[in-house]
Nucleic acid binder design. Structure first.
Lengths: 151, 151
DNA sequence: TGGTATTAGTTGAAAATGTAACTATCAACG
DNA sequence: CGTTGATAGTTACATTTTCAACTAATACCA
């Protein structure tokens, strides 16, 4: 019983062209480059950073809105919101018309953290983008937004 | 004490342009579209699928090689290899010259699973790619390969 | 009204991942 | 030799994520 032979022909398509694979690796490599910013300083996870960023950038909204905008599952968002609340970075307020909803908004401390991280994120993004031309950056982002199916 | 105002000006850069974020969401959306193929049929995780794909596509190699090629941590690869071994999809063989190494190769059953999944992956990739022009696809993949820092 | 279906959000258990420490093997150099 | 350091891979433990079931509130509709 021998092992199947190594094949390098065109019978298979190449893993290095498979979009889900490439996107995951690229996402992991770049994200872990940035995560030290929020992890070491604030002890935040990636999901918590995402929630903070949404509230900082777009203002008060419900967990449901964040789920939709970030295409993130509600349990992840729920736990991130609890964690940020423990950090006193956000507050919840029950909607009086429909009491299933809670409007989330950052506290001044949360907003301060957001602003600080926002600066670092911008810097990081400029560094990463510098290796591509303006046209490449435009196409890359357009394709990614479309793939991510963002609103 | 009021909440910070919603800001939609240019003081902050936009989350929808932040590459690590876009890459993660796009990767998650596309990957979860494909994962049913290996998850429901074989009960494999994403990492296991990656290892299977590497061995199927490029032939026998060590865990260390897979770590380097897929930029994946050795503990993830180690566990994926054990799982695939339990499924009888691969075998290990100690290198006699240097007994720290184990050469991994697919069994015929593992290879069969690879071929089946490979077909689905190709089909999936063609569908995803169809929404972009040839030029966009080329630029997208080139940028992603560079970001992923693949060998 | 009342019953059924939806929706927002939470929780517990299981699975996956990250981190650090560990074993075993080999290399290098005195 | 023998000590030190590096490397391949595993394991234990903590954190994070996933999945399914759950509560509470509202919508729909006969």
């Amino acid at each position: 019983m021998r092992a199947p032979p190594p094949e390098d022909d065109d019978a298979h398509f190449d893993l290095k062209d498979f979009l889900p694979y490439l996107l995951n690796i690229a996402g992991e490599v770049t994200s872990s480059g940035f995560q030290t910013s929020y992890k070491t300083q604030y002890g935040m996870t990636r999901t918590e950073w995402r929630v903070l960023f949404h509230l900082g950038r777009y203002g008060a909204m419900t967990a449901r809105d964040i789920c939709a905008r970030a295409r993130t599952h509600k349990t992840k968002v729920s736990r991130a919101v609890s964690a940020l609340e423990r950090l006193r970075f956000l507050r919840r307020q029950k909607d009086l018309d429909d009491r299933r909803f809670e409007t989330l908004c950052l506290t001044p401390e949360g907003y301060k953290a957001y602003k600080a991280l926002c600066g670092k994120a911008g810097e990081f993004d400029r560094e990463v983008s510098a290796q591509f031309t303006a046209e490449e950056n435009a196409i890359l982002r357009r394709c990614l937004r479309q793939l991510a199916d963002l609103p």
